[in-house]
Structure formats: C-alpha cells, structure tokens
Write a protein that binds this DNA or RNA. Sequence first.
RNA 1: GCGAGUGUAGCUCAGUUGGUUAGAGCACCAGGAUGUGGCCCUGGGGGUCGCGGGUUCGAAUCCCGUCACCCGCCCCA
Length: 412
Amino acid sequence: MKFSRLRGVKDVFGDETEIWEKISSAARKMFSLYGYSNIITPVIEDVNLFARGIGEGTDIVLKEMYDFKDKGDRHIVMRPEGTASVVRAYIENSLPPKSDLYYYGPMFRYERPQKGRFREFFQIGAESFGDPSPFKDAEVIKLAEGLLKEAGIQDRALVINNLGAKKDYRYNLVKFLEERKEHLCGDCLKKMERAPVRVLDCKNEKCKEAVKNAPLITDNLTPEAAAHYAEVKRLLTECGIKFTEDPKMVRGLDYYTGTVFEFTTSILGPQQNTILAGGRYDNLVAEFGGKSTPATGFAMGLERAAEVIKSQQTGAADEMSGAFIVYDSKHREMAFSILNMLREAGIKTLMDFEDRSFKSQFREADSKRVRHVIVIGDTEAQAKRLAVKDMKDGAQINIEINEAAAYLKAGK
RNA sequence: GCGAGUGUAGCUCAGUUGGUUAGAGCACCAGGAUGUGGCCCUGGGGGUCGCGGGUUCGAAUCCCGUCACCCGCCCCA
C-alpha cells in the first residue's frame, strides 16, 4: 500500500528546511533584540474564537476553516491564524498588561492550493499588547523589516494604510456604491454589504472605473487616527524605512482598527505576493472579554519567505568541511574507533559502513564535500598511523593517530 | 467555491496518424593496472506511462471518471 500526502500540504526537507532554519534563527535573533518572548498555543481551538475574532463574514471563517467535531461533540477548528489564539492566551493567563510575544507554528485553511498558498502553512508572528503609541506601530514595523532583512529577503516593499475611519464613512461609501450598483461585478455587490472598503480594491476594470471617485478612507479618518497615522509615517521615515501608502489596502481580518501594513515581494505572482502583514487591533482584547488593551502585531508566511530566498540564491558551492574516513574492509573496527574519536573531539566526520572500493568511498567523500579524507589501508593499520588527504589540493600526509584531531581542527 | 492547463525513471523532458521488449540527459551503482575523488570512457540498476473504468485484435497515445499539481478569479501569509 502506497500513501501520498493530502491535498495542499507538503513535506519540507533538504535545502528548504535549511532556508526555514535560517529564517527562524533570524526571527529568534530579532525577537530577542526587541525583548519579545515566545508563546506556544494549541493548534486546535473552539470555533467561536475565530468566528468572533476574525469576523463572522470573512472568507476565512465562512469557507476556509478546517473544523470538525471531536469525540466529545465539541466543535473544534485547526487555527487558521495566530492572533486570536494569542489574544485568548493573553487574557486567559492574565499575562502582564504590557506583553510582547512571538509565535511560530502551522496554520490551516481549507483553500484551493496554488504556488505560495497551502492548506497547512507556517507562520512566524508577533503580538504586542498594552502600548497605543504610534512609536509602537513604527517599532513593530521596524522589527518586521529587520526580520525580513536578517533572513536575507531583499526583494520586499512596504505598503501602509490606516483604517481608523469616522463612523459615517462606511455609510457614505455604501451610499456611493449603491448609486453605481449596475457597474459593479457580482463579487463587489456581495462585498458591499460585508466589507464595502474591499470593493475599492477590485481588479475588475469596470469596477475600478466605477469607484474612481469613491470617498477614500484616508480622507475620512477621525482626527485621532489621522494624527496617529501622520506620526507613524513620520517615525518610519525617521527610522529610514521606505514605504508607499495605499488608501485602498484593507486587510482580510476584521479586527484591525488603525495602522495596517504589508510587505510584498515581486516574485510570487500578484495574488500571493504578501510575505508579511499586520496592523493595530485595539478592540480585540476587550471583545474577547479582557480589559480594554491596545495591541498591534504581524505574521509572516514561512513558505513564501522561503520562496523569495530560494529565488535569490546564487549557485555558489558550499564550503568544504569535515572529514571522511576511507578504509579497507579488514580495518573497519579501527576506522570505526577513529570515527568516534574524531566526533568526540568535535570534528564533523563521515564514514560508510559497507565494503566498498576506495574509489567508491572517495567518490562519496567528494560528493559530501568534505575537506579531508582519512585513509586507513594495510600500511596505515600496521604502522598505527593515518594518511590524511586534503581534498582541495590533493596533498596527502601521514600522521600519528593522536595527532589527527588537532590537525583536522586546525583546518586550513 | 468558479474557469483553464498539465500528469511518462529520483529530476528535466522526448514518445511520430493507437502497433512488438517505452527512450534521452542529469542523478544513482559498478568498472576503467598495482589501495585515492572531481573531468572523461564503458557497463548496469531503476518506469503500476497519476489512479480507475471504457473503446479496440492491440492504448503512454482515443473516451469517461477520479486524484494531484499548476494558472486565472476569489481570498490570504
């Protein structure tokens, strides 16, 4: 019986895990620099956490949740994103009012798979609680940018917006759209009720034309939001962060209330080009029953970030390192003890346990890109010495066994 | 969820109007004088032609279904 993986999920290994590790170590470094601590929350949660948190009307909740009933008849969902869980945990565990947290783990969405879009995907995210200041927004964006930079992602652009509109904005926008109803596509008509701002972002040419003079959110911010937004922009410039503004950018999660931002890349195609996104959500903690607490955060998609790094990689060969033991089968015991000795001395050492020709063993040593080959044939075994060949220049020397570790460690 | 495309060896792909034992390159394995890699040469292993059904004397090739990937839309990281 042969099995294959389920739709939209993938096995990650080899070069790709290497890139993932590079990203996560970049993340650990940046988070520690900014004083964030790690939080691990369960993959499964109660459905209502996301229905309430992300928004009842969003696509994620409406049709993309991986949900099921467990044996106790509980309605469970495999988390489609990280923020709702972290907010829940923040309240439930009475974490300090000011908390800076980061997380790493798999998320699940029942979507049609495509390049850079999976049903199980990994996110690294950050959530900062308790600070309403525009400085915090700028700091979070600076952190996000630092993380991308540290991970080696050069191909990135930052887009920002603010969603702090006046109360009557939505009403006025809907009214504007109602008047142009006949020019809008079917999707937009649906969006009009649920998330009217989204209509402004439609790619359909007719819709674009129809909404050309629609009231923009940035022209209808509350005085506080406008001041906050201006301050965030000033601070970003102060930090040396380049950005563009997009008054039509809206995020797909309903909880955002102020600054929103997205880092995009050009290599993933127009629909999956967001690699990191986030924003301010000052009402969510209160909506979840906690004490009213301002908050802001972001999430990065590992698969997409890795894809960008992969596309940037030059074909440079890896450095040669470590040693490979080539031996005559009669002396396998001796070779094995040398192997253990070198490893205990902290030297990366490889060896093949099958009886293979010197030629085969050397070929393997070469493909493993080791710097040195230790040869143990009859001559060496009798003299209780080792021949050490430098695979870079082909030079070979003969040394005492107890000199080997020091010699290899010295490298070249 | 809607619309289109693709699916042949580990990888990238050939495969003529349906016709014998399905091919190439790369990768892998072995050998190329006496124990020594890369380049080169010789040989070798490896394929339920995505899967299931149908048409036919005969199907990788035609038809139907199904699964997967991928592209556009939707949405999002």
